[in-house]
Each structure stands twice: as C-alpha cells, then as structure tokens.
Design a binder for these strands. Sequence first.
DNA 1: CCAGAATACGGAGACTGTCTCCGTTTTAGC
DNA 2: GCTAAAACGGAGACAGTCTCCGTATTCTGG
Lengths: 188, 188
Amino acid sequence: MPAGRPMRADARRNYDKIVATARVVFAERGTDCSLDEIARRAGVGPGTLYRHFPTREALVDALMKDWAGRVVRDAEAAVTADLPARATLMTWFESFVEHITLHRGAAAKLCAAMDDPSSPIFGKCQIMGEANRRVLDHLEARGELRPGVDAQNVMRIIGGIASVTDSSRVDLDVRPMLEVVVDGLVTD
Amino acid sequence: MPAGRPMRADARRNYDKIVATARVVFAERGTDCSLDEIARRAGVGPGTLYRHFPTREALVDALMKDWAGRVVRDAEAAVTADLPARATLMTWFESFVEHITLHRGAAAKLCAAMDDPSSPIFGKCQIMGEANRRVLDHLEARGELRPGVDAQNVMRIIGGIASVTDSSRVDLDVRPMLEVVVDGLVTD
DNA sequence: CCAGAATACGGAGACTGTCTCCGTTTTAGC
DNA sequence: GCTAAAACGGAGACAGTCTCCGTATTCTGG
C-alpha cells in the first residue's frame, strides 16, 4: 500500500479502537453482527466506522493483519515436516479450516471472495491460495498427487467443508470429511 | 401432517398466490430477496404472508413440494442404472448439486438445516439424506466403497461444494471437485 | 338465505440494521 | 496562536422484518 501521509492522531486512535472492538464483537457474535454496535461499543459514531471501513469485508480484512503470516507459516511447516502425503495434507487442511473459520461466518465470506477481485479480502484469498499451492506442488513434485488436480478447486472443496461446518448448529468434527478429500487427492 | 379442517377459500387463494409469486421472485433474485416484495407482488399484505409462512424457510419449504419426489427418483435411477461406482456417484452427486442449488442461496440454507431439527426444511434434508444413503449403501454392498465412510459427512461435503459454487460470482464447473470426492470414496 | 361466529385480511407502524451528509471539532503546520 | 485541512459523530433517510388489531370475508346451522 502507498504510504500517503501518516494518519492524523485522532484517526489512528479511532481506527485502532474500532479494530480492537470488532475483534471482540466478531468473536462474541460472529462476522455478521451489527456494525453500528461495534461503533457504539468502540465509542465512535457510525460515520467514523464507515469512513475507515467502507464495507464489512474491509473491516474483516483489517482484523486479518497477522493472519497471512500464520497461514504461510503453517503451509511451510506442512511441507518441511516431510511426512507422507496423507499426513501432510491432513495437517495442512486442518490448519486451513482453522484459519478460515477464525470468526463465525468468515468461511463463507472468504469462499465468496475467492473469485471476486473487487472484494477487500480477495488479497487474503490469494495468500491462502498460494500457500495451498505451495503444499500441493510439493507433493506433486514427489509424484504423490493424482494428476489433473487443480489447487484452486481443492481450496474450494476445503472451504466448502469449513463453511458448512461453521454454519452448522452442532459442533462437527471436520477430520472425517477432510480424510475423504485427502484420499481423493493422493496416489496410493 | 394432520389434516385439521380444510383451509378457508380466501386463505387457500392467497397461499397459492404467495407460493407462485415466491417461485418467480426467488428465481429472479435468489432466496434472500425481500419477503415484503413477494407479498406486494402477490397482491397481499405482509401480515398475510407471515401468517402463512412464519419464517423464510417455511416459504422455501412450501416451494419444494414436488422436489422430494425428484430427489428420490434420481437416487433410484443412479442405483438401478447399475453403472461402475465412479459413474454412479458422479451421476448422483451432479443431481444432488442441481437439486440443492435450485434457487440462489438455497444450498447454504439446506446445509445449515441438516443438523437443525427445528428448521422447517429439516424434513427436506432428511429426504436428501435418505436418498444419499440409498446410493451409498448400494455401492457399499458391492464392496465398492471405502470402509468407514459416513453418509451424513458425504452429504455435507457435497453440500459444501454446492454452497461455495452457488455463492461464487463466477460460473464454476462442479464436476472436477466432485471427481476428487468420488476418488476419495471408491475402492480402486 | 341470512345472521352470527369464526377466520383471515392488510397495512400502519415499531423495530433493527445500513449508510450518508454536513455542521462541528480536532489536529498539524507555520 | 492561527488557519486550513482532516476527521468526527450523530441525526436521519432508507430498506427489510415482523406484529397488532380494526375491518372484511367466509362458513355454518337454523
């Protein structure tokens, strides 16, 4: 991002207050909570919130500041652990699901943004996509992946599992589902 | 459903008008359109709509009157065609996705209702679940399915793929994704 | 066929959430 | 300090959900 000139002190203060409050409220009520409530609890007017974050996704994006680093780190860890393909994929996919379901409702938003370059969180999807490709390429190079598998589609499948799990009333275990996908990806 | 007494003539008339209009508006704008708009276009007051259909899902459910029959028929067809496991699953899963994405936004609602007996469309999920189990049981009996696969989870995975596809801005082909899942389900 | 009871209608409006506009306040730079 | 630029914040427009209750329609039995 172009630096522009530094933010004015009050702007910076409010920006930070909003982000901090959003983190709390998103955790409490999920990503679809009222934005005006966040503004109220942050002690700013709604106008201030919307000036800093024109859309809900822009706010979600701001919360994911250090998220990208964690994603890349986990992908790298899965690769360097140098385990059998099945274990590598399971580890990575579990991380994937965990990252994408940080807040309730986030998974569906991320999935929807995967093919929407105009979305503020499209960049995050790209990062996720690159991390995912990193893992798959590694396995492919070792011939442990079935040919013709598109990394983007793998991301969609795992994203779908995460979304469904996230929107379910009950607490589901994603691993059996991930195992099916893993079995569908590895060569035997 | 217990018959109760027959509906009053005007009630029946309005009920039918609302359902017919909802079919049109859902097709135009998806399952998340304004319910008041449906009422307006059906020429009834909002009160009337909400009396007949207390929730949006109750209305969705009413639209799926003949849906259940089609689902069961397709599952049966996939079984009786007696094709190899891969082809059977692909055929069935493609039908599954088609049925669950009848209207934009429907897939996510169906998935969320899968584990929510209080949802008006829970019954539809049950039907879908039984149809799906029917197909999987058939393959399992022939030893063409990997052991330990839970039909409910398969439904969630396919539902997830459908949801993600449905919410995507671009027009995706689900088949490559379904193929991964199929590969993960069949014995080689 | 008509009167009365039962049922259903419908729309005004309460409520909640989104988002904007613009008069007022705060900050930064000189 | 003074001024211009930047940011604030909250009133309020707008849209969607959903309810309440006075009014209208339908059904029933005499």
